[in-house]
Design a binder for these strands. Structure first.
Length: 609
DNA sequence: CGGACAAGCTGA
DNA sequence: CAGCTTGTCCGG
């Protein structure tokens, strides 16, 4: 037997043929991790194919050793598809699909145990929900599962466990296992724990890789679990499918929700995407199932707007109403903290009119304008729109020509300002640090970047100190990402049922993202966003890729010769934005340009555009 | 990636 | 021209 082996060596992007010796003949299969001698080195690699015709005039070396079991053949194939779809190498996908530690043999498969119906406990933060909502979620889940590909819109604070259990139960008649993806490792751990306590056998990925492969368990994990070795699937569920964390940040920049759809399609099983705020990309080509208006409303927190245009520009700091709201929340719920969320550090500054303090935005597309150069003495500055690439003089929509002022919260000052304003202890928390024993600091008010929303499990109030940085971020998905933040905040405070509140300080109180959250109707953002995307020819109307790095120039030149369906736009120095009519056309076009030279980065579905 | 080997540079 | 660096090629 002869096999093709892909070495686990980062610089090598091709396979080599090896001979399988007699003693390994029964055990070496596609997906296995083997050791081979390559160029005098002993390296690991994956068996990616069995070959019937040996390459001519090469005396083959033998496979030295079987190192570990690896992804099943169907996952090797899925990895190949993803490498094509995201114009990258297969190796990173096989790394993600492989067990974290060596696996020599699989544990026994679990036989299915019948669980008595109706005994499920609703645990943890879901305790305040009554049974009516769970029944509505279960019915919607069953309805969604009747389509091969659907989006279930569940409000942020709704018990996602109800949807997972309903899906498990509804597909009980079929053979195989349910695969559930969660947006973060922490979420996956929590979900696995709750499912186990409800009596299910669970294989948490990646550590229970072998258990997932042997079958009979619900397979739960974060992004990479979409490549877990489930031999027989009966459904795939992606929770919080809108989350950015589902996209791999290194190239190839594959998206777990996209792979989940393809995996389910190949297995002929339903793929259910669950999200409080489905993006246009998720909705494209899928059936949308929603709850009743009442049920959806109950899962979003009430949003309170603070119009920053009303603030006295000379007073500085935050308005007193903010202090009132924070003190009230601390007073009524002293055991849950107040979270104050600051926009990410180092983001672009916004410009506001020096007179009326309203933001200076592009007349054509609404993007925040930036000031690239200092104006000449006595002249009004020229402002630049990063999206339209046009330059306009500084003119305020309501007061005419104006001298712009930079709006940026003094990052270091915010904590002191809030402490002075509220008279409460305010602690600053970052992505990791602070707090004894890795927990959150024990202060009634916590300030940090959006990471605080991921780190705190519960809060009485979430305050977005300057939401305009999210609303107007120079990325086409800014609106969707901003709504996702409001959804996350709604979940952390527990929606309407837990009397949680979300306060948003903004100069754009009529923005459709805020309207969507205020009305607990994410569809409002979709309606507003759809025509804009079509007009500006952005996804899902088109598919994008960003080519950068050393070989970008050369690669893009070859691409333009090889394929006429794509459109190449240069943007920042050395970066090229590639636009194609769809993701398949994009992948084919990029593949037709041949192998990019080392140092060329191809980011399919770029996030920062 | 990392070893092999060739071409290029330096100093006596 | 030995001895070293730098660059390019290629792997079964």
């Amino acid at each position: 037997m002869i096999v093709e082996v892909l070495p686990d060596v980062s610089g090598i992007d091709r396979t080599f043929a090896y001979d399988v010796p007699e003693e390994l003949a029964g055990t070496v299969k596609v997906g296995c991790i083997v050791r081979v001698v390559l160029h005098g080195r002993r390296v690991r690699g994956w068996v990616v194919a069995e070959v019937t015709v040996p390459p001519p005039e090469i005396d083959l070396r033998p496979v030295s050793e079987l190192v570990s079991l690896g992804p099943p053949p169907a996952i090797v194939d899925l990895g190949r598809w993803a490498a094509w779809r995201y114009s990258g190498r297969l190796r990173p996908l096989l790394v993600a699909a492989s067990p974290p530690r060596l696996v020599r043999a699989l544990p026994p498969a679990l036989s299915r145990r019948a669980r008595p119906r109706g005994t499920t406990e609703w645990l943890g933060g879901d305790a305040t929900w009554n049974g009516t909502l769970e029944r509505e979620i279960a019915a919607a889940t069953v309805q969604a599962l009747s389509s091969s590909s659907s989006v279930l819109r569940l409000p942020p604070a709704a018990p996602r466990l109800a949807a997972v259990e309903a899906a498990v139960e509804a597909t009980d008649g079929r053979d195989g296992d349910v695969l559930v993806l969660a947006a973060s490792r922490a979420d996956a751990v929590t979900l696995a724990d709750r499912l186990e306590r409800a009596g299910h056998a669970v294989a948490l990925q990646p550590e229970a890789w072998a258990e997932a492969a042997s079958g009979g368990r619900i397979v739960v994990g974060a992004r990479s679990a979409v490549l877990s070795p489930v031999a027989r699937l009966r459904a795939v569920i992606v929770l919080d499918a809108h989350a950015d964390s589902y996209q791999e940040e290194r190239v190839p920049t594959w998206e777990a929700a996209v792979l989940a759809g393809e995996r389910a399609r190949r297995a002929g099983v339903p793929c259910l995407l669950v999200s409080a705020c489905p993006t246009l990309d998720l909705l494209a080509g899928r059936r949308l199932v929603t709850l009743s208006r009442d049920a959806e409303r109950s899962g979003w927190a009430p949003i309170e707007l603070i119009d920053a245009r009303d603030e006295d520009p000379h007073a500085g700091g935050y308005p007193t109403r903010l202090a009132t709201l924070i003190r009230a929340a601390v007073g009524t719920e002293p055991d849950r903290p107040v979270l104050a969320v600051l926009n990410r550090k180092g983001r672009a500054r916004l410009l506001a009119c020096g007179r009326c303090r309203s933001l200076l935005r592009c007349d054509d597309c609404g993007t925040a304008l930036v000031q690239l150069e200092r104006p000449a003495q006595g002249e009004l500055p020229l402002l630049h729109c990063p999206r339209c690439a046009s330059s306009v003089p500084a003119v305020c929509a309501s007061c005419g020509p104006t001298r712009p002022r930079i709006v940026r919260p003094g990052v270091a000052r915010v904590r002191d300002d809030l402490a002075a304003l509220t008279g409460l202890e305010v602690a600053e928390i970052g992505r990791t640090g602070a707090g004894p024993g890795g927990g959150l600091p024990d202060a009634p008010v916590l300030v940090g970047t959006e990471a605080v929303l991921h780190r705190a499990t519960s809060a009485s109030l979430v305050v977005f100190l300057d939401f305009d940085h999210e609303l107007l971020a120079p990325r086409y998905r800014a609106g969707e990402q901003a709504l996702a933040l409001l959804a996350l905040a709604s979940r952390v405070v527990g929606g309407r049922r837990r009397q949680g509140r979300v306060v948003v300080r903004t100069r754009l109180p009529d923005h459709e993202v805020l309207a969507a959250a205020l009305h607990a109707d994410p569809g409002r953002l979709v309606t507003a966003e759809e025509p804009r995307r079509a007009l500006l020819r952005l996804p899902p109307t088109t598919a994008l890729a960003l080519v950068s790095g050393d070989g970008a120039d050369e690669f893009v030149t070859r691409l333009e010769c090889a394929d006429r369906t794509v459109e190449v736009g240069g943007s920042a120095a050395g970066h090229f934005l590639i636009r194609a009519p769809g993701s398949d056309a994009l992948a084919d076009a990029l593949a037709s340009a041949g192998q990019p030279t080392p140092g060329t980065r191809i980011e399919v579905g770029p996030r920062q555009v």
